[in-house]
Design a protein around this nucleic acid. Structure first.
Lengths: 205, 205
DNA sequence: GCTGTTGTTGGACGACTGTACAATATGGGC
DNA sequence: GCCCATATTGTACAGTCGTCCAACAACAGC
């Protein structure tokens, strides 16, 4: 009966950081910025103690930046399902519409973090860097889909237009989930792109 | 020398409420939700005392709702420049692009408030109500511009698509002002609408 | 000049915030 | 079984938060 039951489990730093980021995103999802609190985050991370965030990230704000980066990484991962840089436009749309990356909670977390971008220069730089990748990837997919034809507007302009619309749809779907269904969002994506590119929809539609 | 200099000025309730809403929007604009604080708001309202918000609105949250309503009222006002219900599409676009309604500060305030909509059911209802008006107004303008022609997609769908894109553009312009200029936003608006409606741009372009 | 209504003040209050830090426990290497 | 690097704990701290409320002052009406 000398078996020792540890008071807590010790994690490797990267693993613990991931847990905290996860907990942070969860808190942002259900309480917005106001819910992003040391106490709540630690509780959401399985009851960790309050000192952990400072220890692993230096400050709460830096944890927020890590959350933003993680959210973007996931979305970019979704935008390249096969892991390849080259992804067809329809594959990208379907992946971005999947529940994993655009769940109600994820969208709320995005919205909460966006509200902080303007107040944190570092976060804005982070945003700019990621947005570039995102835009580039969409441009590439559009270029592939246009197949050499000349479009009514440039591929860059169409990509910006498309990304903006998707963001706006997600935004509205986040503000009022009952108005826009996931199917509505998909429909809008194809409506917009086909107005410039011609039919691109998969056959079963 | 018995002249009495008042310690403070007394305002009619509606006027004071307006001052506080104004101050609230200003605080949201430069500090996000975190900047929306009793102390800061009162200071921004010309140094009013802390008890005023509770007195006039009941709680800080209700002041936020009033701020949201005011922001939307202004935007809807911009979407109908002449005060009439009927407004041409181009008039609407130009009005919505004017500096008064889409200044950097205004956009930041919107973004901050959006982050709170999901956490406040009353705010969500407010949003829904206003969005309906906005959508209706855009549908009407599109219907007028389409002039009886059959479009590739329904007028409702095009309106949703247009509004989403505008929101997304504003969002990105708010997150990174250097990426998107006001002119870029205008260009995107016309690019999208003309893809479905044909040329609608004013002659001097 | 007085009175009454009501807009305004400003401090008290308890709860909660993020961070710093010294003490402690864990689990791998030997 | 011991040692040690380090992940973790939990409290102390100074500050800020939103709300309440009793006293006060402005100003219109008389």
């Amino acid at each position: 009966m000398t078996a020792h039951t540890p008071k807590y489990r010790r994690y490797e730093a990267p693993e613990r950081r991931e847990m905290l980021v996860e907990a942070g995103l969860a808190c942002l999802a259900d309480g917005g910025v106001s819910g992003f609190t040391i106490d709540r985050i630690c509780e959401a991370a399985g009851g960790a103690s309050r000192g952990l965030i400072t220890h692993h990230f230096g400050s709460k704000q830096q944890l927020l930046r890590a959350c933003y980066a993680t959210a973007y990484d996931r979305m970019l991962g979704a935008a390249a399902p096969g892991g390849s840089a080259q992804t067809s436009l329809t594959e990208m749309i379907e992946a971005l519409l999947s529940d994993d990356y655009t769940s109600q909670g994820t969208l709320r977390a995005w919205l909460a973090m966006w509200g902080e971008v303007a107040n944190d220069p570092d976060l804005m730089l982070e945003h700019r860097r990621y947005y570039d990748h995102y835009l580039q990837r969409v441009v590439q997919a559009i270029r592939e889909a246009s197949d050499g034809r000349t479009l009514a507007i440039s591929e860059d302009a169409l990509a910006t237009l498309f990304i903006s619309m998707v963001d706006g749809l997600w935004l509205e779907r986040c503000l009022d989930p009952e108005r826009l269904s996931r199917a509505d969002v998909r429909q809008a994506c194809y409506d917009l792109l086909e107005a410039f590119l011609g039919p691109i929809r998969p056959q079963n539609d």
